[in-house]
Simulated scan of single mutants.
Amino acid sequence: MQYIKLGSTSLYVSKICFGTLTIGPLQKKLSVEDGARLLAYAYQKGINFVDTAELYETYEYIRKSIQISGIRPVISTKSYAYDKKSAEFSLYKALKELDVDYIDLFMLHEQEGEHTFKGHYEAVEYFLKAKEKGYIKHFGISTHYVKAVKDAIKYPEIEVIHPIFNYKGIGIVDGTVDEMAEAIKQAYIHGKGIFAMKIFGGGNLLSNFRQALEFIFDFPYLHSVAIGMQSIFEVDYNIRCFEEKKVYLNKELLENVKTKKLHVESWCEGCGECALHCHQNALSVKDGKVVVDYSRCLCCGYCSSYCKLFALKVI
């Protein structure tokens, strides 16, 4: 496994970051034991970088994986904190549930640009003070916006950017894949740590996984890539591809590759709460039921956390 310094930070990370969204309650719903063992296996195979978020509810998986493996990975998490109170809650929740003394990388979740960054600056100030005290090593943002990547260059306190990036530009809210690529390039040149998310478009590009991977391999301005994995096969396969920068086709792979989609159960009452929180505008209510625009849906499963009836799930 190749390791690289994450921009100007002190962190050395594997080219693959294990994205834990897919193993947790919002997607695969693996048991904590099974999810932790999968993470521990990935650490033992050389992946030393893990991405999570307060929303994902996977802190327990990571804590257990450290206990099983005896390996403490580089941990990146994020929250929607907007003021001192919510930032303090998010940080101490992460420290307690992960059972660690510090967070390697703490990010503001789904930033849109300079205006949202300034709007959350009370939380930013809290995180920067926590960084001075050693509770956070580095600070950053995650985003689906080209503008946010560009604006982040202006702020030295934003050390790492976690942007959406795939060959079709699925999920980029305010621009094209070429515009995102140029913004990432400039941020990389300016010393920002860059690790991409949703290179398979939230599962929508799995049928074209060769093109999706080759696009990433050919783009030189990424330090790492977050990939959601749900099995030992996926861990082994992705490691092999990244180590050799080559996409392998075989029967086992084809049997394991399944395109994901968001499913709405029949008992949905159409309250619309999920649609209000879908930043991709992929959900709407029609005739008393939630309707999914699959051309916009990223299969992230975030919407399911707002459904009191548990009527939404990624399958």
Rank of each mutant, 00 (worst) to 15 (best):
E97S: 07
A42I: 04
D104W: 02
Y59M: 10
A40D: 04
Y80H: 14
Q44L: 15
K85M: 07
S65F: 05
D83V: 03
K45L: 11
F89I: 03
F106N: 07
Y61H: 07
S90A: 12
A87D: 00
L95K: 06
E57Y: 13
Y80M: 12
Y61S: 06
Y80W: 14
Y80I: 00
D83P: 03
D99L: 09
A42Q: 13
A53D: 07
E60Q: 13
Q44H: 15
E60Y: 06
Y41T: 05
Y80N: 10
Y102H: 08
Y102R: 05
N48C: 10
A53Y: 03
E88D: 12
T52C: 12
Y59I: 14
V50F: 08
E60V: 13
E88W: 06
Y92W: 15
L98E: 11
E54L: 06
M107H: 10
T77D: 00
F89R: 08
V100D: 15
K64V: 08
I68S: 02
N48H: 11
S65E: 07
V100E: 13
A81L: 01
G70V: 14
F49N: 09
L105M: 07
N48M: 13
K96Y: 12
F49D: 02
D99E: 15
I47S: 01
F106Q: 04
L91I: 06
R72Y: 15
I66Q: 12
M107G: 05
E57S: 11
I103A: 04
Y56R: 03
E54P: 02
P73R: 09
E60T: 15
Y43T: 07
I62G: 06
S76E: 10
I103R: 03
